Computed example of a mutant assay.
Amino acid sequence: MSGTTLSLPAMPGQRLARGVARLLRSMDHAVLTEFVPSRGLRVDVISMGPKGEFWIVECKSCRADFMGDRKWQGYVEWCDRYFWAVDCDFPTDLLPDDTGLICADAYGAEIQRMAPETRLAGARRSKVMRDFARVSALRLQGLTDPEAFSGAAF
Rank of each mutant, 00 (worst) to 15 (best):
M1E: 04
S2D: 13
G3D: 13
S7Y: 13
P9A: 10
A10P: 03
R15H: 02
A30G: 06
L32I: 09
T33L: 05
T33Y: 04
E34H: 12
R42G: 05
V43G: 09
I46R: 00
I46V: 15
S47I: 00
M48S: 06
P50E: 10
E53I: 10
F54V: 07
W55K: 09
I56Q: 06
I56P: 03
E58P: 01
C59Y: 00
K60L: 07
K60V: 08
R63Q: 02
R63L: 09
D65M: 07
G68D: 11
W72K: 02
E77I: 08
W78R: 02
D80G: 08
Y82S: 05
Y82F: 15
W84I: 09
A85L: 01
D87G: 14
C88H: 14
F90Q: 01
P91D: 00
D93K: 14
D98F: 04
T99C: 13
G100N: 05
G100H: 02
C103V: 15
A106D: 12
E110M: 10
R113Q: 11
A115K: 06
A115N: 02
P116D: 03
T118Q: 06
R119L: 01
A121R: 13
A121M: 11
K127F: 11
V128W: 04
R130D: 12
R130K: 14
A133H: 11
R134L: 11
R134W: 12
S136K: 09
S136G: 13
L138G: 03
T144M: 00
P146L: 11
E147D: 01
A148D: 00
F149I: 00
G151M: 03
A153Q: 08
